[in-house]
Structures are given as structure tokens and as C-alpha cells.
Simulated scan of single mutants.
Amino acid sequence: MTLPKLGVALLAAIALAGGLVFWAPTQVLNALASSNTHTVSQGASYGPGERQLVDVYRPRRAAPRGGWPVVVFFYGGSWTRGERADFAFVGEALASRGILTMVADYRLYPEVRYPEFLKDSATAVAWALTHADRLGGNPQRVFVMGHSAGAYNAAMLALDPRWLKAAGRSPRELAGFIGLAGPYDFLPIENPDAKPVFFHPDYPPGTQPLEHASRGAPRSFLGAATSDKLVNPQRNTQALATKLQSLGVPVTLKFYERASHMTMIGAFGAPLRWLVPVLDDVTAFVNGPPG
């Protein structure tokens, strides 16, 4: 890494660690991501809508017998902002570890409210299950993953069978769920951006992932920053892990001392991987034995 690039990377680290606006630093992480680890197909349609699109990151390394494991990733942003292109560094990071990665857009508020973005997310995962084999992936090893609001989406698909059932699929087809800094038990809502998304204060029933935990849930990886200031890690990550474990679901639980809410995903970027080993841990989980 050249000195100018190192300086830019350090600025990105400071911004992310301080919990400042995340979207500009992602451009830095994307700019510093390797182009030699993967090929990318941008804008594959999983539905008819303008935001029902997915970018597919295929590893350059040879696929194992049966195909690469597959991760469908949903980004955060309080269900009000975000673009799949902002998270190219996540696609690159996972593809560099031999994981076929799909970074999906979904409709946002104010265009839609709950539960429409869950319907989009379920349709994206159904598309991934259908097309995994054609793309070189293993349809028996499809994982759903998200950060922050995206971890909520992923959790709801993994835990509440309504959404994948409506898309012609089932959570039982998932090889695992990966949630990073996710909100799983967050009523009443304090975040002003998220309040209208869930019709505050008239919340629809059944919106909280924690209440859908069951013995049939897929094996899960739950990670959070120990001192997350935006999403309480004990109320959300620890509580969901405890409930799933009490039901006999295999759970890998990781808390990271040097991370913040933002660097839980920012650390997938090459210049920030020294902060916390979250990429290593997620890779180990994906490559681990079935639950």
C-alpha cells in the first residue's frame, strides 16, 4: 500500500470508528479493494422493480466440489438509504475467501414501509437459491447475511418462515444466518429515521426477530461491537444468541472490543481488517460443518 493510500485508509478508519457518516468512507474502501480476487456481474434482476437488483461477485479461485458457498448480503441504513454499489468491498472481501457473494438492493422508505423490504429480500434469496448452481455456487450452502438494518432483514428471513414461503422457499433451505450489529428486539423505536418505517407508535405485530426464534432456525453467526452506541449489543445480539442456544440452535457468538457499529462492516475492507477479525470469523463460519 502506498503512503497516500495508507493516509486515506487511516482517515476512513477514523471516520468509521467515530461513528461518523458511513457512506463516504465506503467509497474509500471500494477504491482500495482488490480487483484481482473476483469477477463481478452488476445489476442482475431478481424482480421487476428498479431496486430489485443484485451484484454477483464470483471468486477467481477454482470452485470446490459442489460449488462455492454462497452469501446473500443485505446492507444497513435504517431502511431509508443505501446502495449495493456502496458495498463492493464486502463482495470483494468474501469472494477473495472463496465465497460466491450477492449484494442485494431492496426498496427503502419512503417508497415502502415494513414489510415490503422483507418481501424484496426474500425474493432476492429465492433468486440466489434458484441460480446458485448456474453461477458456480452450491445451492445446498446458501447463507443469508446482513449488517445493521440489513441484519434485521436477514434475521427475519432466517427466523420467520412467512417471508421465504411467500417467495416459494423455506428457511430450512438456508445453510446459515450471519447477523452483524443487528437490531432484533428494538421496540419502542428510538431512531427517528426508523420510526415511520414501522408505523411508530402503531407497530404491526410480529416485527421483532427475537420472537420468531425456534428450534428450526438455521445455524447462526451473531457478531457485534462490545460498545455499540447505535444498537444495544446485549439487548439484541446477546439476547438472540441466548434464545437460539436455549432452543438447541448452533450459534457462534462474537463480541469485538475494538469495533464500532460502523466498523463491524467496515472491517471487511482491506485497509481496516486489522481492527477486528470479523472477515476471518465469518469465513470460518461459512466453511464450518453444517449445523
Rank of each mutant, 00 (worst) to 15 (best):
E92R: 11
L159N: 05
A88E: 09
R162T: 15
Q140W: 01
W163C: 12
G43Y: 01
S96D: 15
A149I: 07
W127D: 08
R107V: 04
L100C: 08
Y184A: 14
M102Q: 11
G77Y: 09
G76W: 05
R169F: 03
G67E: 01
M156N: 14
R81T: 14
E116G: 01
R58V: 08
L118Q: 02
T80K: 08
P161R: 15
Y57S: 11
P110Q: 10
Y184D: 03
A175I: 11
Q140K: 12
I178H: 01
R51L: 14
E173T: 11
R84T: 12
T80L: 05
A158H: 03
Y106A: 01
V103C: 06
S121P: 02
A104N: 04
G150C: 10
L108E: 01
L174P: 04
G67V: 00
L157R: 02
S45K: 15
Y75A: 14
G82N: 08
P183V: 06
A124H: 02
A122C: 06
R172E: 13
G47T: 10
E173P: 14
L135S: 13
T101S: 15
A62K: 13
D105N: 15
L174F: 06
A155H: 00
A104I: 08
L94Q: 05
G91T: 10
Y114G: 01
A122W: 11
K165C: 02
G91Q: 04
F73N: 09
D86R: 14
A85P: 02
R134M: 15
P171R: 11
D120Y: 04
W127G: 03
A124I: 06
Q52R: 12
F74R: 03
A85Y: 05
R97S: 04
H147V: 09
G168F: 12
R172V: 13
Q140T: 10
R107I: 02
A126Q: 02
L159D: 05
Q140E: 09
V144Q: 07
L187M: 07
A88W: 00
S170N: 13
G176W: 13
G47L: 11
G91P: 01
V71W: 02
I178R: 00
A124L: 07
E116Y: 07
D120C: 12
L159K: 03
L187F: 01
G49D: 12
K119P: 00
T80N: 02
Y152P: 10
R169M: 03
L94D: 04
A44M: 13
S78I: 06
F177D: 02
S78F: 10
L129N: 04
